[in-house]
Design a protein around this nucleic acid. Sequence first.
DNA 1: CGAGTTTCCGTGCGCTCGCTCCAAAATACG
DNA 2: CGTATTTTGGAGCGAGCGCACGGAAACTCG
Lengths: 192, 192
Amino acid sequence: MARPRKFDETHALTAAMETFWRRGYEATSTRDLSDSTGLGQSSLYNAFGDKRELYLRALRHYYETHTAEQTALLDRPGPVKERLRDLMVHAIDTDLADPEASGCFTINASVEKADSDDEVREEVSRHFSTVEQALAETIARGQRSGEISPERSAGTLARQILSTYYGLRVLARIQKDRNALLGIVDSTVSAL
Amino acid sequence: MARPRKFDETHALTAAMETFWRRGYEATSTRDLSDSTGLGQSSLYNAFGDKRELYLRALRHYYETHTAEQTALLDRPGPVKERLRDLMVHAIDTDLADPEASGCFTINASVEKADSDDEVREEVSRHFSTVEQALAETIARGQRSGEISPERSAGTLARQILSTYYGLRVLARIQKDRNALLGIVDSTVSAL
DNA sequence: CGAGTTTCCGTGCGCTCGCTCCAAAATACG
DNA sequence: CGTATTTTGGAGCGAGCGCACGGAAACTCG
C-alpha cells in the first residue's frame, strides 16, 4: 500500500543510542544522528519524532539491551558473591575496554537530563529500580543460602551495592588502573 | 591608567559556576552566562576568555570552595567513622535540599566533558584524588586508633568509600527517600 | 497499469549559537 | 586638562541548530 522502509528500525535506533550515549544529548546534533543512522533527517523525524523523543527511545533501547544484560549476570547459577562480583567486574572491563569511554548511558542521562526532563527522570528511575531489585533478589538468595549474613536487610545491602556500582562507573571514567577498581569490588563484596 | 572594573571577579565566577553546575556545559549559552553574572558578553570574554576557559575556571573555583568544604569535614576531631558518615550525610542533605538538584559539579563534569576535553579530565582527576587522599588519611587515622581494622589497606578502603560516595550522589538525583540513602551510609560505615 | 500511500532526499526556514567589533565611558598619569 | 589605556554595552557576524516542506521514488492493491 505504500513505499517500504529501506532501513531497519532497530539498527537505526542502536546507532542513535550509541551517538547519544557517547556524546550526550546537547552535544549531539540532528545531523550527527542522520550521519550515524544513515537516515535522512526527514526519515528520522518520520520514524521517531523529534530529537527528544528519539533520545527517550534510545534510553529505553539501552534498558532493553544493556541494563537487561547487566542484571542477567546476577541470575546465573553459582555463589551469590561471585555473581555480584561479576556484575561489577564486567562493568569495569567494559568501561576500560571502550576507547571512547562512554560509561553507563543511564548515569549519563541522569546527570545531563533527569533534572530538566520528567520523562527522562522516570526512565532513569526505572533503570535504577530494576538493577536495585535484581540486586535485592540476589542478595536475598545469598541470605537464604547462608552465604550472606541476614543481619542487614537485603534491600539495604542492595542499595549499598548499587551505590558502589554506580560510583565505580563514575570513577572508571578517570581511574584507568584496573587493579585499583578491582580492589574496590573485592573489598565491597568481602564485607558483605 | 585605565577604566576600572565595575564587577567583582569572584562574584562573577561564582555565578558562572552555578550556571554551569546546574545546566551543564552544552546547555549553557554565553547569553545565560551573561545574564547570571550580570556582565556583558564582551566583559566576560575580556575577563575570562572563551566559554571553555570560563568553564575550566568555574570547575577550579568549585574545587576551591565545595570540594575543599567536603574534605574539611573529614579533618574535624572525633571518631573517624563519624567523620566519614558526616561527609556522606552532608552530601545527601545538600543534594536533597537543592530544588534544582544539581548534584556534584565534579561528577557532572566528568560525565559530560572529561572524555572530550583533556584539561577537564585532569581537573576532575585532581578533585577525585584530593577526596581519595583525604579519605585515606582519615581511615589511616582510624586504623591507628584501632577504630578501623587494619586488615585492608587504607588506600583500598578509601577508594571503596569514594566509590560509594559518588554512587550516592548519582542515586540522590533520583532517589529522594532520605532514609534509603542514610541506610546506604550506615551500612557502608558499619562494615568498615 | 493507474490510484493511493508512505518513504526518501535535498533545500532551506527561522532562530540561536559562540564570538567579535566598535564607539562611548571611566579611570590614571604626565 | 589632555592623553593613554582599559572596560563597557550593544549591535551584529557567520555558522550551525532543530525542524519542516515538497516533489520524486517505491511500493501495494484494485
